[in-house]
């Protein structure tokens, strides 16, 4: 495969999987036409060409991913890769909750939300909330995103 097509194919991996399956071949063909036409007209393909391509593809991929995100349904969430990401994100909840409580502790009104001191004093509690759960969360998120967006093929 030609270098420019190889690079462009990698860019297309930023799009949602379904979009890639439907339009990848066509987009590669259109890009090849655009590339060859620019080469014919200008005699070279410069940095401005690649800048435009890069900006357009990144912006397009962001829009498509947002559209895709809006279509998330329970059935979609239950797909294996989405489930892994969801579990990963849920593991961050305790640390988010702890931070939230820490902020609220400055206000007496929310004192009832405080984590009881005996529990908070346990080292295992703090370690699991601050280190273990987020680390497992990061691993789950990474695995899920890799599976969902085929990152192993991108890098």
């Amino acid at each position: 495969m030609k270098k420019h097509l190889f690079f462009y194919k990698r860019l297309l991996r930023l799009y949602p999987k379904k979009f890639q399956d439907t339009f990848q071949k066509e987009m590669l063909d259109t890009f090849e036409d655009y590339y060859q036409n620019t080469l014919k007209e200008k005699g070279k393909v410069d940095v401005i060409f690649w800048k435009q391509v890069l900006l357009d593809e990144v912006w397009g991929a962001i829009q498509e991913n947002i559209n895709n995100f809006n279509k998330i349904t329970i059935a979609n969430i239950m797909k294996k890769e989405n489930k892994i990401i969801l579990i990963g994100l849920l593991l961050f909840l305790p640390i988010a909750f702890t931070l939230f409580i820490t902020i609220l502790e400055h206000f007496e009104t929310f004192a009832f939300l405080r984590i009881p001191t005996p529990i908070y004093d346990y080292a295992w509690f703090r370690i699991s909330i601050l280190y273990i759960l987020p680390i497992i969360g990061i691993i789950f998120c990474t695995l899920g995103v890799r599976k969902k967006y085929s990152f192993k093929k991108l890098i």
């Binding site: 979009f19 339009f23 987009m27 890009f31 435009q52 357009d56 498509e64």
Partner: peptide
């Protein structure tokens, strides 16, 4: 000047 990404997003 419409880019590939914009075009196929609209086509979809």
């Amino acid at each position: 000047i419409v880019g590939n990404g914009t075009l196929y997003g609209s086509i979809k």
